[in-house]
Amino acid sequence: MKYIRIIIIFLIFCNIPSYFLAKASASLGQLLSYTTFLLVIAYYLLSDNKKLVMPFIILGILFFLVSILVSAENTETYMITMVKYFIIVVMGAAMVNDITREEMYVVLLLGCLSIIHESIFIEGIGGRYRGFYLNPNAAGFACIIGYCLSFSINDKRLKIIGQLLFSIAGFMTFSRTFLLIWVLINLFSLLISYKNVYKIAIGVVLFSLFLSFGSKLDLSAKRLHAFSGILNGKVNDDLKEESREETWAHYYNKILVNPILGNGYHSFSGETSGKENNKFTIRNGVHNTFLMVIGEAGFFVLLYFLWIYSAFLVNGMRMFSDNPMIFLVSFSMIMYMLTNHNYFDNYLVLFVSIWIYIQIDRWKSSESLSSQGI
């Protein structure tokens, strides 16, 4: 079972099926994707622990039911996305229940190394590195989750090595979201111990060296210039260009068309049709999970979604003195979801969300037993 679990974690957390789909062949990528879900199903059938994570099951029922009843215009991938989602949240939960933070940490380190490898050995890909993750923002998210997990790793050498590698790889993605979350996480770490100030100092030094040698690394010249301005206390216009706020603004009026029930499945996830009579003409997705949920399934589904993740934050704060990593990971996920809209088929986000839910549930159970004197 352990080996099956490690293989599943590697396939999901390192985005292996999608990577081979894009870099090798469609048939190989599809084979790895089917293999991943078959392994998840097999693990569930062999597992003795089949506890359901009801909040995510209810969320899926609400979102997929409401969004398809409102509009069936964009249903090409509806069934596939829905089936895969429920395999993850129903059957995948059995595997997630057995995952240790060390397993997640080491596998994410492998993903991080793919970003560093790409920056050293592969040229001409646009100057923003992404490794197995294919997208710089997704790569940055994987790095920040690994960085947050490092705060709970007991092996000091592994912890320090991981923090350095996750930081370096994250910088190489040139993700504005990664940089912002990385700074905030390090500020939060001061609440754990004032000694963590050295991480901020080391991070600033690494960032400075990274920018200094940027011209030798085939980095994005535009982002390099923009990020260099941060060290001088300036926010360059290049960082403001094509900002997420501008993308969100395109969709505000469309939310008001039907704020209660939304506008239907995939209506906020990017348009592919160029027909003039199409309800929405904007081709880019909303790049915000919360706006995507209200835009496609309405206010009440968003309210339930907010309840799940606000509970993560509240419980994370309650657990902070004992296990600060729960709050750090929860906060990072929410920040990332402000810039990403593919929640229901983002399996890294789903697995990490289920893992956080299980950790909080275990903590509540232990607290309940302690209050009863057991």
Rank of each mutant, 00 (worst) to 15 (best):
A42T: 13
G60L: 01
S33V: 00
L38Q: 03
T100M: 05
D98H: 10
S47A: 15
K84W: 00
I57V: 15
A24Q: 07
E76S: 09
A93V: 06
K84R: 14
L38T: 12
L59E: 09
I61A: 12
N74R: 15
L69M: 14
V83E: 01
G92I: 10
T35W: 04
T81Q: 12
L62W: 06
G29R: 11
V96M: 10
S25C: 07
M54D: 00
Y85I: 02
L46E: 06
F63Y: 15
E76H: 04
V70N: 03
M95Y: 03
T35Q: 02
K50E: 07
A72Y: 05
L31M: 14
V40S: 09
F56T: 02
E76L: 06
F56S: 03
G29S: 12
A26C: 02
F64I: 08
G60C: 02
L38W: 09
V83C: 01
I58C: 05
V96K: 03
T36R: 13
F56V: 01
L69C: 13
I87M: 14
Y78R: 01
A72E: 09
A42C: 09
A22Y: 13
N74T: 03
N74Y: 13
G29E: 11
M79F: 13
I99Y: 12
L32A: 08
L52W: 07
Q30D: 14
E76A: 10
M82D: 00
V70E: 12
N49F: 04
I61V: 15
V89A: 01
S67A: 07
L62S: 12
F63L: 04
S71Q: 04
V70A: 08
A93R: 02
T36V: 10
A26M: 11
A94D: 08
I68T: 10
Y34E: 06
Y43P: 04
M54G: 00
A24R: 09
T35M: 14
T77Y: 11
P55H: 10
S27M: 09
V40K: 05
I57M: 03
I41N: 05
Y85F: 13
M82A: 13
A93L: 08
N49Q: 11
T35S: 15
T75Q: 02
K23P: 03
A72H: 07
S47L: 10
A94G: 11
V70S: 05
N74C: 01
T77L: 10
Y78K: 01
V89K: 01
S67G: 01
P55A: 07
P55S: 09
T75N: 04
V83L: 12
P55D: 09
M82Q: 02
K50M: 06
A42L: 15
D98C: 00
L52M: 13
P55I: 09
F64K: 04
E73P: 00
I99V: 15
P55E: 07
F86L: 04
E73R: 13
S47Y: 11
V66E: 06
V89Y: 00
L39Q: 10
Y78Q: 01
I41F: 15
S25H: 13
L46I: 05
F37M: 05
I58A: 12
V66K: 09
I61Q: 03
L45G: 05
N49P: 03
A42K: 11
G60R: 02
